[in-house]
């Protein structure tokens, strides 16, 4: 099965077989289904959208309809090996709290974010003087659900502030192509950034 999103393949590589996983904002359940079929992963997806809930149930995954901004208080500490938040952090009301919650209920967190420092976005804003609209950020400023956009640098700074240790970082592009530029300057050439992280051990 080929995955529809370039970030999903990286996440599959990062997650150890037979882990317990919580996928926050799991969409139509594609990632969880892939992980459960091919890697024996078990766990739950959390999703708010009605259509996605129906699709998750069709896909045979465990999905819980819930607004992430209400927090994860129904989940106990250390319930999961991995907590995934893919392309959802930027749409949450309190990204910093959500990151904290992820590491309360899980041992490791995996986050993917649209990179606001991507070259196209920089050109659209810096030269065009307009809010960026592109493949990762397809909506206009007034109707976008992406209310907390950041660059890779911004995200890494927040992690540091919150006592989060970044274990792995990758930047990818929609066309799944990797070039030397992407590796050297991820904050400029990465459309989507992925991070695997845990609490800093004191």
């Amino acid at each position: 099965m080929s995955l529809s999103r370039s970030d999903f393949q990286v996440i599959c590589d990062w997650i150890k077989p037979n882990s317990r996983v919580l996928d926050l904002g799991c969409g139509n359940g594609e990632l969880l289904q892939e992980l459960s079929i091919n890697q024996g992963v078990s766990g739950y997806g959390i999703e708010i959208d009605d259509k996605n809930i129906s699709q998750c149930i069709k896909a045979g995954i465990n999905v819980i309809q819930r607004d992430l901004d209400l927090g994860l208080s129904d989940f106990d500490e250390d319930s999961f090996d991995f907590v995934i938040l893919s392309l959802t952090l930027q749409a949450s009301n309190y990204p910093h709290r959500l990151l904290g919650e992820m590491l309360r209920v899980g041992a490791e967190g995996i986050v993917t974010i649209p990179n606001f420092g991507y070259i196209t976005s920089r050109i659209q804003l810096g030269l065009g003087g307009r809010m960026p609209v592109n493949k990762t950020l397809p909506l206009e400023w007034y109707n976008t659900t992406n209310i907390h956009l950041c660059t890779l640098k911004d995200f890494e700074e927040l992690c540091d502030k919150l006592g989060i240790e970044i274990l792995e970082q990758r930047a990818v592009r929609h066309n799944h192509k990797a070039g030397p530029g992407l590796k050297l300057f991820p904050n400029l050439f990465g459309e989507i950034a992925l991070y695997r992280f845990r609490k800093k051990t004191s």
Partner: peptide, 13 residues
């Protein structure tokens, strides 16, 4: 889910 049971939950508007 505390018991790791398979569960799905839908909240119908």
């Amino acid at each position: 889910h505390d018991n790791d049971l398979n569960v799905s939950y839908a909240e119908i508007e």
